[in-house]
Amino acid sequence: MAEGDVAQPGTQPGTPADVPGAASAKRHVGQILVAAGVVVFGAALAYGTALLPEATGYAKVGPRLMPTIVSGGLIALGLVLLKEALFGGFRGVDEVEAAANPTDWRAIAWISAAIIANGILMVPVGFVLSGTLLFVLAARGFGNTAWVKNAMIGLVIAVITYAFFNYGLGLGLPRGILPV
């Protein structure tokens, strides 16, 4: 599927002037990084595979076989993706629309903080309170600043789910600093 897919629908082959290499490369920096990431991931997997012990036994198939196939596949796919990213961009991905609709990184930061704090606090502080904090921070990520109201809603949800999963299903959620 390497050659046949290259011409983008709509772009006429034979008019290379339409695709100025530098400009299109500039537009697709993100895509190039993603494609390169796939190649690097595949290469790292291949390196890890080489460190695995050799297969023993007469069949000569061991723990290395599947990782070899997967890493080889990832490197190959990453290279084809890289080719697409460099020449015209990923097929069917509208970068113009993406650019018109920028990512709100502050929202992502709030939600990232919410989940990471939850991972740190889950065991020492307990499910209920860390869940409440998660709820408040995530709601802030969506632009809502009604802290007190959100904290109360979050607390109610956390208590109900804690009761249901901990006592109903015996999931063993951390109690933390709370008495029950």
């Binding site: 990471i116 991972g119 949800i157 956390a158 999963f165």
Partner: peptide, 26 residues
């Protein structure tokens, strides 16, 4: 904001509950 915040509570609950490991949340 309430819907997705609630989804995240369930998400961390299910993932932690599977084998009681905070590592899984990260």
């Amino acid at each position: 904001h309430l819907l997705y915040a609630g989804i995240l509570i369930f998400a961390t609950l299910g993932v932690y509950g599977m084998r009681q490991s905070a590592f899984d949340i990260f």
